[in-house]
């Protein structure tokens, strides 16, 4: 669910007050969130031979349609409805941009160099630093 910018601001300010050691940023990076999906979908979404579908190279719209449908409960799911309800539209979009840039081939056949370039391209597409 999208939170209003004002609510986010208030939340951020009160969090800062509570923890003061950290200036709490607004959002995790698409990359950092996407890494969290690896135990099911493969490293960087690059698993192509299992029941859990690959995410690497998925077009942004296809990713967003799927995730929004899981979140709203309009697409049948065993686990993804629960996962999708953890993310805002903005967060989903950042992950969508990042996954779209990952190579469409198994992780085992991807070199570190190749992946670092792809991960950087993903971060740039998601409009993040690096």
């Amino acid at each position: 669910m999208q939170t209003s910018p004002l609510k986010t601001l208030i939340a951020a300010v009160s969090l800062m007050a509570a923890t003061h050691a950290h200036a709490e940023p607004q959002m995790a990076t698409g990359q950092a969130m996407a890494w969290q999906c690896a135990p099911c979908h493969g490293v960087n979404g690059q698993e192509f031979s299992e029941a859990m579908p690959p995410l690497a190279g998925m077009p942004v719209k296809q990713f967003m349609d799927a995730m929004l449908a899981y979140r709203e409960g309009t697409r049948p799911a065993v686990i993804m409805d629960r996962v999708a309800r953890g993310f805002t539209d903005e967060e989903l979009n950042a992950m969508a941009q990042w996954f779209a840039k990952q190579p469409i081939k198994p992780w085992e056949q991807t070199t570190l160099q190749e992946s670092l370039s792809a991960q950087q391209a993903g971060a740039q597409a998601a409009g993040e630093k690096q």
């Binding site: 669910m1 969090l15 969290q36 686990i79 629960r82 996962v83 953890g86």
Partner: peptide, 20 residues
């Protein structure tokens, strides 16, 4: 299965959104 996405809220790691 049991699942959740987490974030830091009120100084604690807690389930995020309605994921839990």
């Amino acid at each position: 299965s049991i699942a959740a996405i987490y974030e830091v809220r009120d100084g604690l790691i807690q389930p995020k959104g309605k994921s839990e």
